[in-house]
Amino acid sequence: MKRNQLMLGVLLAITSASAGAAESAPSATESMAAMAHSGHDHAAMMGMGKPMSWTAYPTLKVKSSGESRERMVAIVVPQNIAADGIDAWSNNLIDENGRRRLPLDMAGAKLDKPTSGGFHWLAAREEQDSAVRVASSVYYYGERGAANPTDMFMHQKHELEIVPQPYPREHSRYRANEDWKFLVRFNGQPLPEQKIVLETSNGSRSELISDAQGVVVVSIPDDFKAETEGKKAGHGRPGADFVLAAEHADGGKNYLTAFNAAYGKSAFDQRSIAMGLGFTLLGMLGAVPLLRHRKAKKNDAPEQKAEA
């Protein structure tokens, strides 16, 4: 038994090491080229901002740490951005953990679950000469009775921001073929007619324009290919990532902000409405005899005869 476990352990170690190498090799080269657009090598400068292959925009990768049942720490890894820390806002802004600066090490920044729990806005900021770049994302710690996060979402955190309106709540998530609203604002003021770029890890790219209130409606593309499952987005469901990015120039500075999150397959993937309605109808037919008035039988009690 022990021997089998040892063999399994060795096998797993070899597999994960080779998978890690396979993942990192192409992404490093591709993202160096991708980051060349901004003129300098962020990853090399700080030893942070691990490169990401599918987008050149700054993003934050957030992953749970430790055993799934503990879920008390998340690791935040900035990608395509050279930041010296991660700013975390909790849904209870007046709490002592309302805003925290999380130091970055080689593995990323550790976000502990505060007692207030709930939603966390995470952001990394980089300022180089006249360029300001921000990566932002949201992480959710399930917590009963957590404060309403609307104030936290609406609180101004950076100059240029893309704010979900709203962010998917617990038991919900972004999914393909769904429309979600985002507010684009600069210094707290909505930015009308602002160009937003959507990119996904499945290769989709589109451009959108915000309306007069600075709101942009994003249709999450259904770009999962049948033969590739992609990463797992919780509960073993296939998922992918998207990023929304906006650029805005003001006062001689160029601001770029990006918001990234995971999304899953369409709600109707591997579902059949026709079969669902069919079985519902079958159940309904099964109950139809109950709707018929029964005839009184000879040995019925008087009360039953009256009912019949």
């Binding site: 109707f268 591997q270 579902r271 059949s272 409405i273 079969m275 669902g276 309605l277 079985f279 519902t280 109808l281 079958l282 159940g283 309904m284 037919l285 099964g286 109950a287």
Partner: peptide
Amino acid sequence: IALRTGTNINFFLGALGNAMFG
């Protein structure tokens, strides 16, 4: 109400649930 068809278990539970709902 759309029946999950991913696996036999999904399908069976879904069919049972829909029929019971009906």
